[in-house]
Design a protein around this nucleic acid. Structure first.
Lengths: 107, 107
DNA sequence: AAGATACTGAAGTCTATACTTCTGTATTGG
DNA sequence: CCAATACAGAAGTATAGACTTCAGTATCTT
């Protein structure tokens, strides 16, 4: 197992940007080149490359270059970090939210 | 059911900030006043009030003022939006990641 | 009533970041 | 070989956002 001890902060930060979510959505449909990602977004390939850097840094995407084309795909680490974070917090929240439900019911 | 059609963007954006995650963590332990949140963070109550505004706007927290004290607590909407988003994407990712696993195994 | 407390709101600062353009540098097809 | 393609890197701009301070306004406490 690759460590992939992705810090959750960068993952949330990365997904906070609508353009990067669009890239993630698109990559969810299969691997794409940088140009293929840029075209429908109406931004430059440079901008996409920068977003890709952010997504790769937090383990949400990965890419490799073959010839002159860089192919990008979804990566597991970031998503696993996200699910783990939610899992770690869910228990405490449910407890709290149950209690909140009771409070709201009184109201 | 309150609509709570929380847009996911603001939720990710809100959780992208470490101070706001700290606030969320603290609120997971139970309701706190604004001052109680500010003290351990070493920032002003004004800053906390601003963060609280962000958290409330995206359904991650709620608060009510009684007398001069505003009591803050965790809210469900934001977290539900988060889980829904992950749920919607998980299927597609798993498919992709399975395929990726196969590719990596070849390598 | 008077001072301490707990925020609220406006306004300013300062950094991060989401783009851009411009200029390379490998590839690849004709 | 040469033009088009696909990106990489540096640098600039412009806006958003995470703070602060300063000046209120209620509300407790004594």
């Amino acid at each position: 197992m690759k460590a992939a001890k992705a810090d959750i902060g960068p993952v949330f930060h990365a997904l906070g940007d609508p353009t990067r979510r669009a890239i993630v959505d698109r990559l969810s449909g299969g691997p794409r080149s940088v140009s293929e990602l840029a075209r429908p977004l109406g931004i430059t390939v440079t901008a996409v490359a920068q977003h890709l850097g952010v997504l790769e840094a937090c383990g949400l995407a990965q890419s490799h270059k073959q010839g002159r084309v860089r192919t990008c795909r979804i990566a597991p680490a970031g998503f696993l970090a996200l699910e783990r974070w939610i899992g770690e917090h869910r228990g405490r929240w449910e407890e709290r939210l149950d209690r909140l439900g009771a409070i709201l019911a009184e109201d």
